[in-house]
Design a protein around this nucleic acid. Sequence first.
RNA 1: UGGGGUAUAGCCAAGUUGGUAAGGCAGCGGGUUUUGAUCCCGUCAUUCCCAGGUUCGAGUCCUGGUACCCCAGCCA
Length: 560
Amino acid sequence: MSEAKATTNFIRQIVDRDLAEGKNDGRVVTRFPPEPNGYLHIGHAKSICLNFGIASAYQGQCHLRFDDTNPEKEDDEYIQAIQDDVTWLGFEWSGPVRFASGYFDRLYDYAVALIRQGLAYVDTQSPEQIAEMRGNFTTPGRHSPHRDRDVDENLALFEKMRDGGFDEGAAVLRAKIDMANPNLTLRDPILYRIRKKAHHQTGDKWVIYPMYDFTHPLSDAIEGITHSLCTLEFEEHRPLYDWLVEHAAIEAKPRQYEFSRLNLNFTVTSKRRLKLLVDEGHVNGWDDPRMPTLAGLRRRGYTPAAIRNFCESVGVSRADSVIDMSLLEEAVRDDLNQHAPRAFCVINPLKLVIENWPQDHEESLEVPQHPQDESMGTRRMPITREVFIDQDDFREEANKKYKRLVLGDRVRLRYGYVVRAHDVVRDDQGEIIEIRCSYDPDTLGKNPENDEGQGKLRGVIHWVSAVHGVPCEVRQYDRLFQVANPAKVPEGGHFLDTLNPDSLRVLSRCLVEPALANAEPGSRFQFEREGYFCVDQDSDAQRRVFNRVVGLRESWPREA
RNA sequence: UGGGGUAUAGCCAAGUUGGUAAGGCAGCGGGUUUUGAUCCCGUCAUUCCCAGGUUCGAGUCCUGGUACCCCAGCCA
């Protein structure tokens, strides 16, 4: 039921403590800082929910800031898609959409200020030399021969960098920190590099671009971010973050805190791999319903509330973890069970002829949209002499655990009458193509008189009128990968090796009840006894396509 | 290999001055049910990575191990 209640986590405890100590004048300002180089996925949802969630829990603010410092990988396409996803998830950022690139001028000034303080220098070594001089885990780095250039020369050189006087790779600006530090990010980290590429926001104004490590803390400080939340891999960057905040002479002192990223089994959540799936055509785009992207989940039929509840339920900690896909699925079921109207859809149709039903007789049954929620109203469902039921709902013989139609036995057509199967009709191959049955007219809305000594009905099955049923296509999805951890590739293998070849099953001979003939793309239903479905955007008046969001929980005896 | 992290049930995760292991998901058993769904009830860690130690008392403190994750981009 309802929104999962927020449990505490270490981030909230830090905020509580800061507030108790009166830090930041009681302000709480967070930010969600995506790089526009791909679509957002379920892992980002965790970060979005955390950042926006903290802000709203403390009457604070959360900024949306594009961390766009690398024009080579970024694209305008992603900027709109990311905003759409955040909005769709149900969050509203405070103020305008921000861009790190919007701070390039100020960032440049901060860099100049560092140079003036003797804390940064222009290094004109080659990339190879710089890498080689950095040392490694066991060997300390060595000073660049340019480390002690005087301030004026550095200023002139940095200006020359800015003005295009160097080729790409010919010079970088570095912070002067500690080449022997065991933390490699402190070995005179590069602050600016030369890229003669147009930037999606700043055009060709710049040929030098600041690095993430330089940009992020200063952007946070500029925006007055109080709590800068990021994932664990940035932990060793924190000393540099603090160093820059310390030396850049900005009043604000944002603090960085790291949490573990969200991993889901049987899928991948790395932009690189997701992009590969798209680029090589293993899926049909970023919004393919099998993708763990927000766009994919949305198209699949996931609701924002389901994803928010899911993120709440997985919690926030610093321990590496892999969340079971079933938790995500349970989150949508929970939401859709409450809110999705019910409908009948026969996936694999098998004709059922009610022999004692008058030839052209029709009845219109009034059935609830949601059996547990009267406020959702009712709909009309026509029943006729011939209906379709699912092939899986009929057997010529079965033990009593099989709660569906069996030759010679009775079952209820849900919301309609009780029928008894008498006979089957076969085609030339011997396949059953039709069931002949009779109905008991006195069983609408009540149980049959028990004078036949039959005991209880076997069960209840769904059906669709053969006359009024609407043809549709159903797309059933399965996990994208066959192994729990596709990112763990064995020696000599490739992560694509474990792609699930049956992740998409298209069933095109399905029949849905007429009430759904004009269902809007994006609308969601529970197809009773089948699962939750969402009208795909490929649907139109001619063709109706339903995506299976997730099946109903199933718990019936294997032997039946 | 140097540094930085993390270990509580099948999967997550609370546990903050040491006081006798929350909660969710999964599982199991039962009840209601015109969806094998939902809903409801019950059950599910004598034990917290391991080994010692301190203490009346340790998941929490101390010592020593072990396992896993991250870092050697002019990516973020």
